[in-house]
Design a protein around this nucleic acid. Sequence first.
DNA 1: TCTGGGGTCCTAGGACCC
DNA 2: TCTGGGGTCCTAGGACCC
Length: 418
Amino acid sequence: MVIGIADCNNFYASCERVFNPALEGKPVVVLSNNDGCIVARSNESKALKIKMGEPIHHYKELVKSKGVHVLSSNYELYGDMSARIMRLLNRFVPVMEVYSIDEAFLDLTGFDDVVSRCHSLQRTLKAWTGIPISIGVGPNKTLAKVANRIAKQTPSMDGVLYLSELAQIQAALADFPCEDVWGIGYQFNQLLKRNNIKTALELTQVHDVWIQKHMTIDGLRLVDELRGNFRRDLDLSPSPKKSIGSAPSFGEAIPDLPTIQEALATHVARCAEKLRRQYSAANLITVFLHTNRFNPKVPQYFQTRTVSLPHASSATSELIQYADSVLQSIYQDGYHFKKVGVLLSGFVPDDFHQMALYTEQPDPRMKQLSNVMDQLNGKYGRDKVRLAIQGFKQNWKPKRQLLTKRYTTRIEDVIRAT
DNA sequence: TCTGGGGTCCTAGGACCC
DNA sequence: TCTGGGGTCCTAGGACCC
């Protein structure tokens, strides 16, 4: 496989520049919703050591002295721009996965002269949308991400790098810190540091068992991809969301219930709209209520409650009503709340719930299975069967599609071996 | 003083059902 | 009466991504 990742450079900042070319060449930062944190930076801002995610007030001096342009975010604009970019990419690369607002995985398998193809894609996008992109290419998603990062850091590459040969990959990984690997965040990096694993190359040499134990099955897949194996397919059709939530903070902490109720209703309405747009209805509703966790001086209160609805719903008024009753059940007097939020989940297709599909039916495989168990017990004796099962139970978890025959064979194998 | 918001997946244990 | 089996739902916590 040949997998690319196309990634827009400094996406929000670049979008702002498209609509205001005067910002070209100047340091730009874009802020989060209520203008709290920095969520995007132009290269010039990065050069000033302005960090991602930091509150803007940390940079008061710098903003003034260096003339940094500070902008509120405009997600509608970014969404539109993103859709244009994805459509355009798709014209040149038919098999792709839209991974985030500013990234897409591209299946470049079978393309010839991958590097120059990527360069021309880059030029086309820049010319037609004004947005600069970088493209990393490798045998799988993880290595494509690695390549992309290196391409961005190395000006001579002009934003494109294809890691193809094993030797080339290993050379790149030898200089690549673990913390920059896609899927390794702060906690895993600390863990690796404690075990003296610093580069991605070193990580590829760690035993699978250790990786899976400490970093779960996701970690194992990731490490396997660093080794050059293909473990994660492109996700070609965007699946409907599994949960939809909304929980912006209040500008100021709020003590009184009616104001909180009103805010919650607004959030629920927004979620319900999203829910209907994807033709889902929710079975579960979660409400949470927080005080300001950053202010240790005020008494803290943090409550979350999930309730299941009597029937799946996507109706705004109905959902608001349920959310409100949950809110009232967790609300407590005497606190100043900074955030109230809602999360809808447990989705079913919207018209599905109207059909009476929820008749309980016993699973026929149960009967089948107990017959098999009886037969085995009769044939080998209860103790042997039990021992055999214990032997492989830990390592082998049959999934949903239980195949009784396969299961029986496994048990018999183990008995024969012991 | 001020500190984002919206998502995903995995693990593990307990209650309960067939 | 106990054991063996698969399975769901729920909760809670922990990790990650952009």
